[in-house]
Design a protein around this nucleic acid. Structure first.
Lengths: 248, 248
DNA sequence: CGACGTGTTGATCTCTCTCAATTAGAGTGG
DNA sequence: CCACTCTAATTGAGAGAGATCAACACGTCG
């Protein structure tokens, strides 16, 4: 199968992504080295690896994780099409976390100096990289809030809703027919700091209460309101706290 | 007290920070709006706030946090002198987390467009912002690993060691005389997803076992080895996993 | 067909939470 | 100088959410 030209990148057409001009697209194309196709469960970056590559996820899902010496694993966040992989590694020599594919996936592989060239040749795209980086951090923040302060029910509700929203934003129907959901219960447990058994029991409880449904590896959210409630997630449109003025 | 000129910034002299040339320093100076002095426990950025400013922490400590509707709070990470405050807010309109000072602190306040100007006028400093952003994310990653997969003892050990290292890197003696430690046990509990009571009991246990000491608000690590063990923290110098080659 | 990965469920155990009470230190005002 | 108040630290006792252990069901695959 031929490689995708950046100017025809299917991701670029999604409303989720910012429009780029021809020069910018050409720059990205010039930094792209090749494509990489992997199956599910393949290690893209190993913990402790040096000289990891910089990727972009073109299709498929993946996740970042860390492990303790007893082998138990904490998933840091999930990566969906369009997400960067390996920005941290480029910056910090040795990889402090691993990355593993969750499904069949196609990755764009970039030159090792791509991040720097992007900043140098296009400040505006460099700025976007910082933006994406900050965006990813806020996903981890949300995960930390879940694991630190929500009950098992709350964590699962929050994860389902947030993953649904991210996935739905990447498809044309906005999630009306559900979204792909390739996680096993073990992945959910590892992302939420729960045991596999307890994850299963909580998942079943929510399913029996008619809050969500997973069929043929697709997730359908049935009762958004109840899930949002359980998760204690706020609707970003309604500001919960009284409006506040900047300090300076 | 007069404001600090960027060219005389005390932080710049620490080995922790990268050297900058005169142009770069002048650029930063031109983006600096003023200084802000705050006492402990002041809100620098409120959750849900729009139009937050961009700061740099010149002296003192602070922390980023999120709260649930029942008022319980999760600390995301601690901010030490030299850290950015508000990069995420600049990028994502509405603040998804709050920031609060922990001690008396002096902040450099920057123009709202400082982040963009930095990228535009100095790609290399823009690149550094991305680097710092990635660096901060990896701190949150470590916190998530702790809260998700470590026992109470492990979490506290990891927090003490990591905070000690960060603080020690900012002082001339490298931590020989201990480092400032302005956290209350409530802060530790909120950072680690533990209750205040259990935090206290665990802290005392480790102290009685002679692993650390806190005196006059200064932290001394007595037995690094034992703490590292409890935390299941690896020495970055010894690679635990077999060396691995990049995938591409 | 057996081996394996994933999901499901029940029983038991334990780490951590919650509730409650006490102590110590720093202000504050008289 | 001494009550009075407030916050932070401390400790004990009981309760509970979630972990662990154990079995079984089901589909896939070599």
């Amino acid at each position: 199968m031929p490689e995708v030209r950046c100017c025809q990148c299917p991701l670029r057409q999604l409303p989720l992504f910012m429009p780029n001009n021809a020069d910018e697209i050409a720059l990205v194309q010039s930094l792209k080295r090749c494509e990489l196709r992997v199956g599910p469960g393949e290690t893209l970056i190993q913990e402790g690896q040096t000289e990891a590559s910089l990727f972009t996820l073109l299709t498929g899902w993946a996740y970042r994780f860390k492990t303790l010496s007893d082998g138990c694993c904490q998933i840091l966040n999930f990566l969906l099409p369009g997400d960067f992989i390996g920005v941290q590694q480029k910056m910090i020599a040795v990889a402090e976390h691993g990355v593993m594919s969750l499904t069949d996936a196609v990755l764009c592989v970039f030159r090792r100096d791509a991040l720097w060239e992007l900043h140098r040749q296009s400040p505006s795209m460099g700025f976007n990289v910082t933006w994406l980086s900050a965006r990813e951090e806020s996903l981890v923040d949300e995960g930390l809030l879940s694991v630190g302060r929500r009950s098992a029910e709350g964590r699962i509700s929050a994860l389902l809703i947030l993953l649904f929203k991210r996935a739905a934003a990447r498809q044309a129907d906005g999630g009306a027919a559900g979204v792909p959901f390739p996680l096993t219960q073990q992945h959910i447990a590892d992302a939420l700091g729960l045991s596999l058994v307890h994850t299963n029991k909580t998942l079943r409880k929510l399913e029996r209460r008619g809050m969500y449904r997973i069929e043929q590896a697709r997730l359908h959210i049935i009762d958004t309101g109840k899930l949002m409630n359980l998760a204690d997630l706020y609707d970003p449109l309604s500001n919960r706290t009284s409006a506040s003025r900047p300090l300076v």
